[in-house]
Amino acid sequence: MEKYIEIIDAVKNFGSVRALQGVSITVKKGEVVLIIGPSGSGKSTLLRSINRLERLDSGRILIDGESVTDPGADIRHIREEVGMVFQSFNLFPHLTVLDNITLAPICVLKKNKDEAIETARRLLAKVGLSDKEKAWPEQLSGGQQQRVAIARALAMNPKVMLFDEPTSALDPEMIKEVLDVMTELAREGMTMLVVSHEMGFARAAAHRIIFMDAGQIVEEAPPDTFFTSPREERTRKFLEHIL
């Protein structure tokens, strides 16, 4: 399979905090990669660098051969093709659920309104929220908000989906409904990078797990090997904490 996302020697510092210290990752088309690690390990920074919400100090990131990190890159075009789901959902509170989903397709992709609405309804059905299209975000539970956020990202018809701790802000009983949607997406062949500690999802959907610590990749392996026989001591210690 072809390389789809290439991260080459990414370095990022926030003042004296060294968030990324030379991270290189390759993701193939259709691959689901889970990034885990203690807080402050740089995993969110890495994810946010992929659509340049953070700018790297050095290193390169390519998506389908197109450079994200090149100063002259058409970053808006790249972002159209990279969907992102945030820990805090970030739905637009002044728009209804339907308008949240159709806004970017209409304004950015210049789709006509009927077409955008049709796509939005199809996606709402997919995430199981067909009855909520007229609701305001504040009327939804966290799990529902996050599913709308996933639908909103999918409405741009992205080639890659980034999930930045999508279930960390959710009550336990809502985590499953979000993970189910993500698992379904993985099964359909979406290329996904997921920062999460959801081990159930890792086993069910991930092709590969990357363990980061202190801005570096410590270990990467398929889920079964990763959980049963981690090579590194640091990985074993971390797994003891979360399993």
């Binding site: 919400l53 970030n90 637009f92 992709l109």
Partner: peptide, 9 residues
């Protein structure tokens, strides 16, 4: 961030 991530200027 959410707006930018959706490709808006």
């Amino acid at each position: 961030e959410a707006a930018l991530a959706l490709g808006m200027s």
